[in-house]
Design a protein around this nucleic acid. Structure first.
Lengths: 185, 185
DNA sequence: CGGCTTTTTGATGTATATCAAGAGCCGTGG
DNA sequence: CCACGGCTCTTGATATACATCAAAAAGCCG
């Protein structure tokens, strides 16, 4: 079990591994010259972090406490096609790029919510609710705004009855179509 | 010779080729849902457009009249490692991403100018001047602003004596360090 | 020389960053 | 069990960079 906020590898250190997430959430991050962070992607239970292709460019960190398995590429029984990892990274970067191309943050946040929806674990306490595991700052650094804007946008979605936020880390989706329309801009 | 404004391949049509630029400039472009364009990259004489990896996602078009050679991957004498093309595309997407992460367009445009500087052909008529082959709209769609902002920013660089613009399509760099400082933000 | 495209510049409105202060939540330790 | 300190989050006020609309100027080609 890896506690939250730990680095799994650092930007620049070459990895010969692949990391599978069993429980929790992992993020890949790049530290920018101007001091800002860019979150490339989040990895959910079942996802694979292709460490050997990412590690040159990104740092991986646990967003929550995590269970992970490291697969050694050299001698381990590694079944994946080598190009699959590169393809996955390409896909991640493309989807981030397309997100960044959307002009206003409201549609970026809407499409982000839709994209993570299927991954969120149920909230045992509440019906139809999910645990929104990510801090606002992480969302902001992924979609390219400030965390204040994330807050305000979520508040606005709530006001428009697109979502509910029973607690800060709990979300209920009320109107998926409405969110989709906003996401399309 | 391919005239300007022609498509070399269309987003979605699978290519089994690679395209080498001998003269002129090529751009790869993606049409976005909201009607906007995103220019992924420009290709200068000597550059290779890895058509077989890009063509699923991007369209390639000539920015100026071009001389190109198409290399067939299947039976042609193709010396490049297959993964080199994927790597190149990754690099292109990463550099675009990092560019989009810079918050203000002034630094994006500064770093863009610096990045194309070495590729620009000399202007035979003027000393120390280069032919700025790209239309403002292409620059805008690459760095993610409006073409008006590109104009104003160039005008500002001129006012600050960082560059000169003897004609619309001619540029002289007066203060590279100054531009670099702006690029770093 | 007209007519077309590209570029420039101006005026205006707006989204969002930034600064700031307060509120809610959580874990630790008394 | 409560109290305290430190986080994260929320909300407000303000400033500003930039998009957008519009019109004029410059360059280009037949």
């Amino acid at each position: 079990m890896v506690p939250r906020g730990r680095a799994l590898f650092w930007q620049g250190e070459q990895q010969e591994q692949t990391i599978k997430v069993l429980r929790g959430v992992v993020r890949t991050v790049r530290l920018l010259e101007n001091g800002n962070r860019q979150v490339l992607a989040f990895y959910w239970p079942g996802d694979i972090v292709p460490a050997h292709v990412l590690s040159r460019l990104f740092t991986a960190e646990t967003v929550t406490p995590c269970h992970i398995v490291r697969h050694n590429l050299i001698n381990g029984a590694y079944t994946r096609d080598g190009s699959a990892d590169t393809d996955q990274m390409l896909e991640e970067m493309l989807s981030l790029l397309l997100m960044m191309c959307q002009k206003n943050s409201i549609s970026r946040i809407a499409s982000f919510l839709l994209s993570i929806r299927r991954h969120l674990p149920d909230d045992p306490k509440r019906l139809d609710c999910f645990q929104l595991l990510l801090p606002r700052a992480d969302i902001a650094d992924h979609v390219g705004t400030s965390l204040e804007t994330v807050c305000r946008t979520l508040a606005e979605f709530k006001a428009r009855k697109l979502i509910e936020l029973p607690t800060r880390k709990t979300i209920r989706f009320l109107n998926i179509d409405g969110l989709s329309r906003i996401a399309e801009n």
